[in-house]
């Protein structure tokens, strides 16, 4: 390796280290990261670590309180192990949160870039369409779409993603409108850069901060949204466990077994909070101008 190449490697390594150190110096972000990693690991290994089959009921042991022998979090109205169902529920919650957000970001950012960069009639069409969608409250739109598409986890994800696309279109377009007047974009045009280079290298890269922030807010919203759709019976279908379904069935027994409603609620809250904290931390370290 030449000395120049070593210098480059060294610079890259120290940059990664610097980013990591900046991240590590923010306790809330670290807590968020640990929480997210934990939830992801739980979701991946749910079938292996579940003490029972989450769909298998036992009518001799319904509504066991938490910390009962053999059932750490107790059992539900059909005698199913709550811990096993929480573990399995993390899968639908996470996949809904991540997949719906990813879909919304990809679609929303694409439309936002097109509208903001090319302007003209395309801009008008895209923006009026988002205005129409924004006229409906997020959950109402998602419920409506999910009802039309039919009840299933995939359709719930699709419905949630479509409902949050307008937000991304708006944020991206606003950023692009400001960035395209920057001198470095003008310089890229003078250099004969093709649109794809200008859009991705010069414009999109500089929209990352607000998009990360928005995504960090969207993921927990999607997790809650999935729970809401499942709660209403148009998301995940029984007997598959989902935090939303668990909440929904718990509401009938809220006076006899309040812990049964509390447990999935706490799971939703912890997951949503972890993603929020992580998102805030990411935003801070992703912006090179942020103070150290």
């Amino acid at each position: 390796m030449t000395t120049a190449a070593i210098a480059v490697d060294h610079a890259r390594a120290s940059r990664a280290r610097r980013l990591f150190r900046r991240f590590a110096s923010r306790p809330p972000a670290v807590v968020g990261l640990v929480g997210v990693i934990l939830v992801v690991l739980i979701a991946i290994f749910a079938p292996l670590i579940s003490p029972y089959d989450p769909a298998q009921g036992d009518y001799n042991h319904v509504f066991l309180t938490p910390f009962s022998a053999g059932h750490v979090l107790g059992t539900d109205d059909l005698g199913r192990d709550v811990l096993s169902r929480i573990l399995q529920g993390s899968r639908s919650s996470l996949s809904a949160g991540l997949a719906a957000t990813l879909l919304a970001v990809v679609v929303g950012v694409s439309f936002g870039l097109l509208a903001g960069y090319y302007r003209g009639a395309l801009d008008t069409i895209i923006m009026r369409a988002t205005d129409v969608m924004l006229a409906f409250p997020f959950l109402v739109l998602a419920v409506g779409l999910a009802a039309i598409l039919g009840p299933s986890l995939n359709n719930a994800i699709l419905a949630l993603a479509i409902s949050s696309v307008p937000g991304y279109v708006r944020i991206t377009r606003a950023e692009v409108l400001g960035l395209r007047e920057q001198d470095y974009v003008q310089a890229a045009i003078v250099n004969g850069a093709p649109d794809r280079v200008i859009l991705f290298r010069h414009i999109l890269r500089n929209c990352v901060s607000p998009l990360v922030v928005q995504a960090s807010v969207t993921i927990p919203t999607m997790i809650i949204g999935e729970a809401a759709l499942s709660f209403l019976g148009i998301g995940v279908q029984p007997p598959t466990a989902s935090w939303g379904i668990m909440l929904s069935s718990a509401q009938g027994y809220i006076s006899q077994a309040p812990w049964y409603a509390l447990i999935p609620g706490v799971a939703i809250a912890i997951t949503a909070l972890s993603f929020n904290l992580l998102g805030d931390g990411l935003r801070d370290i992703l912006d090179p101008r942020a103070t150290k």
Binding site: Q182, D183, Y184, Q186, A187, R201, H202, R205, N206, V208, P288, R289
Partner: peptide, 11 residues
């Protein structure tokens, strides 16, 4: 360009 603050891509 004139403005030294916007002439270079910050990223």
């Amino acid at each position: 360009f004139q403005d030294p603050y916007s002439t270079l891509n910050p990223r």
